[in-house]
Amino acid sequence: MNLYAITAIYRFEMARTFRTLVQSIISPVISTVLYFIVFGAAIGSGIQTIDNIHYSAFIVPGLIMLTVLMQSVANASFGIYFPKFLGTIYEHLSAPVSFLEITIGYVGAAATKSFIIGMIILATSFLFVPLSISHPVWMVVLLLINCITFSLLGFIIGILSNNFEQLNLVPMLIITPLVFLGGSFYAIEMLPSFWQTVTLFNPVMYLISVFRWAFFDFADVPLIYSFLATLVFSLICVSVIFWIFKTGYKLKN
């Protein structure tokens, strides 16, 4: 294992975060605060509680997930797309590094960034709502798993994208709707039965459900389904990345 290469990629990517601190960290935090004000204070005043949980508190896991998933995809996709765009990817391809090491470097950095953002949002939410976490260790573990999984997805998007428009297409047209419709701001049981069935096909719903369980000991679907969904999704992402590096698709002619 070329640990120096992993460290070099990780360090290089993290340096980019600190160079663009406002865009990387402050901007998503401000967006989340706005969500708290709009959904928690304005709209939440009409809903009061869901399953005895104050609505402002109920949306916290969903809000963290919304930002973390978006940021994971954006960070990882940009991280690998930028060297492709600049042409500096030649260094990675001519260096003694394996696909696994490149992936660990980029995905590790992207996941770290989104994990930091997730924790900042959590800290911020304590300022707005009274919040207690039932399973804090699981909450951290689940947050980490989701950061890594969606960074893997972002990494794939970054490799497959041919331009900046395509880079933004998947997060904008797929991830955002899936997170919004995956129960970020409501319990699934609040939907009409037809839409409840439709929601079961939304993989993000399983992630939000288990994450909410870590907070409130309450989940929309059985935990095992959520863990299985996360595992399957991660395996698919790893398999696709392995195939890309094995075949050189979009990387090597």
């Binding site: 120096y4 460290t7 600049l86 500096t88 003694p96």
Partner: peptide
Amino acid sequence: PQEIMLEPFETVYDTVRFTRGLFG
């Protein structure tokens, strides 16, 4: 390589150090 391909926002030292790390 023939063309100049560099990360524009990195410093000279960091970009050279990055390559050294990449090569193990």
